[in-house]
């Protein structure tokens, strides 16, 4: 049981990073990224390629993953004009799928590595220091928690700066910020890069934890799950994003315990889980659209 909880919290921490990243891009800056999983994917693959194919030290690999994701985020930000908001959303979906397709079709090193086979044997950092695998897993959990905490502090701080304030204004349209002299394209670029980098960190942490990655981990439905977490928790509120993460993770992972009680076939379990999350999201949008934890007002007059 403890093993399972350690695993659960580690994964929750990694997903939490993704939620913070999406909340930065959508909740704070109003960017509707429907291909958000691409940052996770790039962080995971680039770190893996650097470490497995090029023998880079793991830390360097992870930094490479973060950088690749951040750069890609910047790339995605370039062609955005506010007018095309829902259009931009659809094209991000397409972009993420193209990247996945590239990884699906490209062998990495040898013919049976990469492509649909994925990459296995991804090394774990500092594994040699621990004899016990459960002790190591606790150690990795600690790493993830530290990353999550630092990222949380970072995004909260960003939101409180004049930079964050301008992003918030851009949520509701480019016209007013532009009329007040703000170069909105530069703000969007930075928001996408930072968000992308955080997503890349999550992906790199995942790759070196799971020891295996494959294109099947990066399907569009994963983006939807992250959106579910952010909307459930409350877009615009980073604490809310984490709350939403934990709730969805709980639902996702508890079904395996409930199933035997309700005599549900294993094959039906997976779909039922997704249906439950889908229904939850619709209920939230219908009845609590601002999410469980609403955006806090910045008060200056005590």
């Amino acid at each position: 049981m403890i093993e399972f909880l350690v695993y659960l919290f580690t994964m929750a921490g990694i997903w939490g990073l993704m939620s913070l990243s999406l909340n930065l891009q959508y909740g704070l800056a109003g960017l509707v990224n429907l291909g958000h999983i691409v940052f996770f994917m790039l962080g995971a693959y680039v770190s893996t390629i650097l470490v497995v194919l090029f023998d880079a030290p793991i830390l360097l690999g992870m930094l490479g993953g973060i950088a690749a994701a951040a750069l890609f985020g910047g790339l995605m930000a370039l062609p955005t004009a506010r007018l095309q908001q829902d259009y931009w959303g659809i094209s991000t979906l397409a972009i993420a799928e193209i990247v996945r397709m590239i990884f699906l079709n490209t062998p990495l090193g040898s013919p049976y590595v990469g492509r649909a086979f994925g990459v296995s044997g991804i090394p774990r950092p500092l594994r040699g220091l621990f004899d016990d695998s459960s002790a190591y897993n606790l150690f990795y959990l600690a790493i993830v928690i530290v990353c999550l905490a630092l990222t949380y502090l970072l995004v909260r701080w960003l939101a409180a700066t004049p930079f964050g304030r301008t992003l918030k204004a851009m949520r509701e349209g480019d016209a007013v910020p532009q009329a007040l002299g703000k170069p909105v394209a530069s703000f969007r670029l930075r928001a996408m890069m930072i968000g992308g980098g955080i997503g890349g960190l999550a992906g790199a942490l995942f790759a070196h934890y799971n020891a295996y990655i494959g294109p099947e981990y990066f399907l569009p439905v994963e983006t939807f799950i992250i959106w579910a977490m952010v909307i459930l928790g409350g877009a615009g509120n980073f604490t809310g994003a984490l709350v939403g993460t934990f709730i969805i993770m709980a639902i996702y992972n508890s079904t395996r315990f409930i199933a035997p009680w309700l005599h549900i076939d294993a094959q039906v379990l997976g779909p039922l889980r997704m249906i439950a999350i889908g229904v939850l999201i619709i209920l939230v949008i219908l009845f609590v659209p601002q999410g469980l934890v609403s955006e806090r007002r910045r008060r200056y007059d005590r």
Binding site: V32, D86, G89, F224, M274, I275, I277, V279
Partner: peptide, 27 residues
């Protein structure tokens, strides 16, 4: 019920509905 909601919420809701339909079929 969402006639006046923002297009993004409608989009996410439709994504959720799509998942429900697809997973019902799969189930």
């Amino acid at each position: 019920r969402l006639r006046t909601a923002s297009p993004i919420l409608l989009m996410i809701a439709s994504f959720a509905l799509g998942i429900i339909l697809r997973e019902c079929v799969r189930a």
